[in-house]
Design a binder for these strands. Structure first.
Lengths: 194, 194
DNA sequence: CCGATATTTCAGAAAATTCTGAAATATCGG
DNA sequence: CCGATATTTCAGAATTTTCTGAAATATCGG
């Protein structure tokens, strides 16, 4: 591995971290390297810096392209492929969330919808279905929220995130201003546990 | 595998999905099974229903306990351990987010802070550090938002999620009501790409 | 079309992980 | 303390994933 120490630390960390996500070490390392590189790199550059085989890099880049996490570009008078990550880190976040949703949430939602159509054949199945419906509704709520904020431009998104739960305060203020007092809001028996 | 068809579908799906998260098939299956079960199950129950070895179940349950995703309880006059998931699905979400943060974000933040302390020894390292700072600040913003909303009770959290980006509208309204017009907000050169 | 260069494919080697059965350990009631 | 039952540990088998080198394929300029 042929990298400045500071970069190497980062790349190694991402390689290890990769396995906690669904990606392998090399893919994690390639991504980390591209992320911190000023210039786009070609496959051979990556081979030199990471010290892995050319074919491994080829496969890794393909996977990153399938994830839309990496951009392919060309330099004039050079027919090799050059790769880079978007400069805008928020674009990266958006892609990451989008792709994870596509791979993890969407298939599960499809399955849940199918299973929820079926007729339960026992009390056990009936209870299982109820639980699956809870999960389905939860995912629906979360993906709905996501679909919604995902449309915001970055500035507004950051604004919203910075606000955090203080939004709550503003909502309460809005309620006090515009809602007929005592129009029912509180007291919704939510038997939490733990 | 000895399960009602509807449950089996769900359990198998979670088993496969497991590998996209950091957990193995058996752990995914055990969790799915516990999630849809009305009653708490003991290890032997799980062995019977999933058809995997007793030792595999033992290790799987240990891992789920390490993730805080599973509760250990006892039945009177029975000294076996019984396991279940929380009834409240929001409690599950909170635990999941908390644990993933602990395992994935926190170590990365620690590393980023360390690396950002160092003196860059070249232009390349300087640029890499800048990128790492962007990532650091992004994580800071996201975890700050999380720490904030995580404190909300479930009812308010659902309220907020249901609102989605409509919060934005309310914020604008607030601005119009309370802020001196033209006090600067717009025009923040954000050179997006893509 | 040719030769040079770039990239991909893929079979099998290497490595990592998952899973099992057997043994060890722990805990209970009596 | 003993026997019965429950759980954990762990070495190695089975499986899966990752990685490599060699060959195949693709694409370019001329």
């Amino acid at each position: 591995m042929n990298l400045p120490p500071l970069v190497q630390t980062f790349v190694l960390h991402f390689g290890e971290m990769g396995s906690r996500w669904g990606i392998n070490r090399t893919v994690g390392q390639i991504y980390a390297l591209l992320f911190v590189s000023k210039e786009a790199l070609n496959a051979e550059d990556i081979v030199d810096r990471l010290g892995v085989s050319r074919s491994n890099v080829s496969m890794g880049l393909k996977e990153l392209q399938a994830w839309n996490l990496v951009r392919l570009q060309h330099k004039p008078g050079d027919r090799r492929d050059y790769f880079s990550t978007p400069d805008d880190i928020w674009q990266i976040v958006r892609t990451l969330v989008e792709e994870r949703k596509k791979r993890e949430i969407d298939p599960t939602m499809t399955l849940l919808r199918e299973v929820l159509m079926q007729e339960p054949a026992s009390a056990e199945e009936r209870h299982a279905q109820e639980r699956m419906r809870e999960m389905h509704d939860l995912f629906e709520l979360l993906t709905g929220w996501y679909a919604d904020v995902q449309r915001l431009d970055t500035e507004r998104l950051v604004q919203l995130l910075t606000l955090g739960s203080k939004v709550q305060k503003i909502l309460e203020m809005k309620d006090r201003l515009f809602v007929v007092p005592g129009s029912r809001k509180s007291r919704r028996a939510d038997a939490e546990d733990k």
